[in-house]
Nucleic acid binder design. Structure first.
Length: 551
RNA sequence: GCGGUGUUGGUGAAGUGGUUAACACAUCAGGUUUUCAUCCUGACAUUCAUGGGUUCGAAUCCCAUACGCCGUACCA
């Protein structure tokens, strides 16, 4: 009996060879230097910013080289799989405009691309063919170590301060005679398939990472599992090898946490004599937690999840900008020179990527977002808030639908000018800053007139109404002159300067008068320009709101 | 423990032997304005983790140390 018998025993139905698959998935016919990238998430039901960043880079790289960006579903760990996860990933990608060129959406019964299946659990026989090949070649073997035995090994190694893993003398079954292995398998013993490593831990090799530059590692000498006994699916490492080779991936973009797996991947590719793709390991996104710095976590940091940005209502543009800024240090400078260019025009350079992890700065995001929103038209803002509120604030959504023009007028305050106001950073903030403009929200009001006593407040409001000062056709100057007139009549200084020169001569200044009016109309002492507010509110509302206080 | 990798202000960072150590965010101060936001002006690392060296000259080159982070699963 030989290794071929062993291989046939383990994979009786596998008839295709790796050469068959080579032919089935030939090199892609793409322009020179076109990059083939992939986004390969596990379907765990959420999207972490640490996954989104590589996806964004994948997309940029593929698109600016006229290559291919494909989506691969890495569902080899079915215990972690969550229903609807792929659908969710598709939605997030679509939201940010990162639609893959090749994919497989089971729920939609939609597939695109010639290099599928794009779902790992559907590629089982491909992996098996590759594993079978390895077994025949004597480069992989069945291992009968039980979980308990492995735990014991680990414990002993850790106690003796040795490297942990199944290697050297710990790899008990690597030289098991074929006959023996066959006997055990035939008797129904469980086994995993391990790589028969040929590496020497004391021998180092150099590896070039596009982001980190030259790295040095000891060779892998661990007989890593390549096929799980639990479900016959390959481990990540093996699936990476097979899929990225067959799908003709040219560039693998992934988080820095994978850097330590390079020796394993290096050996795996060597075992088949396949060319390795280029690797771009990207920095981790970190989080400052008090004094400590750690990897951002979905559990403790809401901003780790992409849903956070969606719920809060950050424009996708701003999120992409913020992440690009972290990803490539010269992005901001580029953006200054190309304010209207799509981000895909930016020539992404892995070399310009910082090697150390970056703290994600929400203040910076706010700033980017604020600037972006300030340059939208009132129609655009309205449309976006409408869209956002339709998902996250139905009540507000109803009000917006009821008063489109009115709402747009609010958003337009000091907007159509060279340097527009910057009021909002995200859509959920808009309601917080405009609620008082809507009668629907303007009830059960508690006014806080600060240092102004109610009698004085009433006097001001009454004077304004009695003189019928408000006229909707007044220019801002006319409107203001009337207020000045009232100010003087009531014994206040109509110019702040005058008041400052000699405060004893006046009851206060025009600031006090406008503030009293402002609080009366909005309950707030800081709002956009009062003239604009009043113009939008209109005479009836002004009268009604003033009278509310007078009575 | 072992392996890897990193360390320039509160944050993202530029910088590769000679710079006042860019730029942006944040913060603070002053000014403009009817408040706010905007806007304008200014401040904000004598110092590049620490200690040694090399050099006329170092954040930049070399060595050591410290610390951070990642990995070390039949998870990806």
């Amino acid at each position: 009996m030989n290794r071929e018998d062993l291989a046939n025993l383990i994979f009786p139905s596998i008839t295709k060879t790796i050469e068959d698959y080579e032919k089935e998935y030939p090199p892609r016919n793409l322009p020179e230097n076109a990059k083939v990238t992939r986004f390969a998430p596990s379907p765990t039901g959420f999207m972490h910013i640490g996954h989104f960043m590589p996806a964004l880079i994948d997309y940029v790289l593929a698109h600016q080289s006229k290559g291919v960006f494909y989506l691969r579903n890495e569902d080899t760990d079915q215990t972690r799989e969550v229903e609807g996860a792929v659908e969710y990933i598709r939605t997030v990608l679509a939201t940010y405009g990162l639609n893959p060129d090749e994919y497989e959406y089971k729920d939609l019964k939609e597939t695109k691309g010639e290099y599928g299946p794009y779902i790992q659990s559907e590629r089982k026989e491909i992996y098996h063919a590759f594993i079978k090949h390895l077994i025949i070649e004597g480069k992989a073997y069945p291992c009968f170590l039980t979980q308990e035995e492995m735990d014991a090994i680990r414990e002993a190694q850790s106690k003796d301060k040795r490297r942990i893993g199944i290697y050297g003398r710990y790899a008990k079954y690597r030289d098991l005679p074929v006959e023996e292995a066959i006997k055990r398998i035939e008797s129904g013993e469980k086994f995993t398939i391990r790589l028969k490593s040929t590496g020497d831990f004391n021998h180092k090799f150099k590896f070039n990472d596009l982001a980190f530059g030259e790295l040095e590692f000891p060779e892998n000498d661990i007989d890593i599992p390549i096929m799980k006994s639990s479900n016959g699916l390959p481990t990540y490492h093996f699936a990476h090898l097979v899929d990225d080779h067959l799908m003709r991936t040219t560039h693998v973009v992934r988080g820095q946490e994978w850097i330590s797996s390079i020796p394993v991947h290096y050996e795996l590719f060597k075992a088949f004599d396949f060319k390795m793709p280029k690797y771009i390991h990207i920095p981790l996104i970190l989080k400052k937690d008090g004094e400590k710095i750690r990897k951002i976590s979905k559990r403790y940091d809401p901003e780790a999840k992409m849903s956070f940005y969606e719920e809060k209502g950050y424009p996708t543009y701003a999120v992409i900008e913020a992440i690009m800024t972290i990803a490539n240090s010269n992005y901001e400078t580029w953006r200054e020179g190309h304010p209207d260019a799509p981000f895909t025009d930016f020539e992404f350079s892995p070399k310009k990527m910082s090697a150390s992890g970056a703290l994600f700065d929400l203040d910076k995001l706010d700033n980017i977002s604020k600037n972006y929103l300030s340059h939208l038209t009132k129609e655009q803002i309205y449309k976006e808030v409408l869209n956002w509120s339709s998902k996250y604030d139905l009540e507000f959504n109803e009000i917006l639908k009821k008063y489109p023009d009115y709402s747009m007028a609010i958003y337009n305050i000091e907007r159509e000018q060279k340097k527009p106001r910057k009021d909002y950073s995200y859509y959920s903030e808009i309601k917080d800053k405009t609620w008082y403009m809507y009668d629907e929200y303007f009830y059960d009001i508690n006014y806080d007139f600060k240092e102004y006593n109610l009698e004085e407040v009433k006097k001001v409001l009454k004077t304004y109404l009695d003189n019928d000062y408000f006229n909707e056709s007044d220019t801002q100057e006319e409107w203001f002159n009337k207020i000045k007139e009232m100010t003087t009549n009531l014994g206040y200084a109509s110019e702040v300067k005058m008041y400052k020169e000699d405060p004893t001569k006046y009851k206060g200044s025009i600031i006090d008068i406008t503030n009293i009016m402002r609080i009366s109309l909005t309950t707030l002492d800081n709002t956009p320009n009062l003239y604009n507010i009043m113009l939008i509110l209109g005479k009836d509302r002004i009268t009604e709101r003033f009278n509310r206080i007078l009575n």
